[in-house]
């Protein structure tokens, strides 16, 4: 690692002020950033740890019924505390990495990083979540801009993520066994008037909604409703773990499994 300083503010205001410094970077749970620093893929002059900021941690239900998750909430806390209110998301969180990783990694850090194989972005898209920052609210559909790219500006921090809790939901991932990142992961969400399908790990463009499946599921929420559909292999990721055709096939299979499991 290159040398840097660490600051550990206890308020959001102090964190934002510290991030104004040139080459300062936010440090959330660090489960991606620290390995990146070890590989010398980044050279910040200062890391601003968000772990001491209590105001961006925790889960609550808003007056309008939406589930509000603080950006600094760990995967482990979401797995435990959202289990009764949003079991689909809690199930997703419970399968990220391993228990020790889940005790550090946060939802805000994951969304801000927008790894093309991260799990949360699929749920955020499928549910039409709202990503709240220190300065504005961003619809999930406008947040993810491509591989590791988001709508976040320099020094902008995710303070909260708001989900309209679906009537039923489920996340299925086909794991790459060494990294346990999804080779393909699909989050499905059933609402009274629509179905949401978010796909991660598959596309060269990053997380996406499978619109055809959403339309089919809106009138017939069943795995059978997807039988006649197929996902084009064009634009799917090709690497040693799978061909584009393989990934395209997995998108459909994982979506069907998720719909069946959501019920």
């Amino acid at each position: 690692m290159y040398a840097f300083e660490i600051e550990k503010p206890t308020t959001l205001a102090d964190a934002l002020a510290a991030l104004k410094e040139e080459d300062a970077q936010a440090l959330a749970g660090g489960q991606t950033l620290i390995p990146s620093l070890k590989a010398r893929l980044a050279m910040p002059s200062k890391l601003v740890s968000l772990a001491g900021i209590e105001e961006i941690k925790g889960i609550c239900t808003a007056d309008d019924g939406r589930l509000c998750i603080g950006g600094g909430t760990t995967h482990g806390a979401i797995a435990r505390e959202a289990a009764d209110r949003f079991p689909g998301l809690a199930g997703l969180a419970a399968k990220i990495g391993d228990p020790a990783v889940r005790n550090r990694g946060t939802i805000g850090g994951s969304l801000a990083n927008n790894d093309p194989s991260a799990c949360y972005p699929s749920a955020a898209l499928a549910c039409g979540a709202t990503i709240v920052t220190d300065r504005r609210e961003i619809a999930a559909g406008e947040f993810f801009l491509g591989l590791f790219e988001t709508a976040l500006e320099e020094g902008e921090l995710i303070t909260e993520v708001r989900f309209e809790v679906p009537e039923a939901s489920n996340y299925q991932k086909f794991e790459q066994p060494a990294s346990r990142f999804p080779l393909v992961g699909v989050f499905v969400a059933r609402y009274a008037d629509r179905g949401g399908v978010g796909v991660t790990g598959a596309s060269e463009g990053g997380v996406f909604r499978w619109n055809e499946a959403e339309e089919a599921l809106a009138s017939n929420w069943s795995a059978d409703a997807l039988e006649g559909l197929s996902v084009p292999a064009d634009g799917m990721i090709e690497d040693l773990h799978g061909t584009p055709e393989y990934r395209a096939h997995l998108v459909k299979v994982m979506t069907q499994r998720a719909v069946a499991a959501a019920g």
Binding site: I6, K8, G30, P35, S49, D98, N103, R104
Partner: peptide
Amino acid sequence: CDTSQCGACVVHVNGAAVKACTMFALEAE
């Protein structure tokens, strides 16, 4: 491994298991 894969470095921080190779000392202040 020093890459947060192997878990040989697991310790408890405020009661929670974490990988001590993927956390800075100053974060444990």
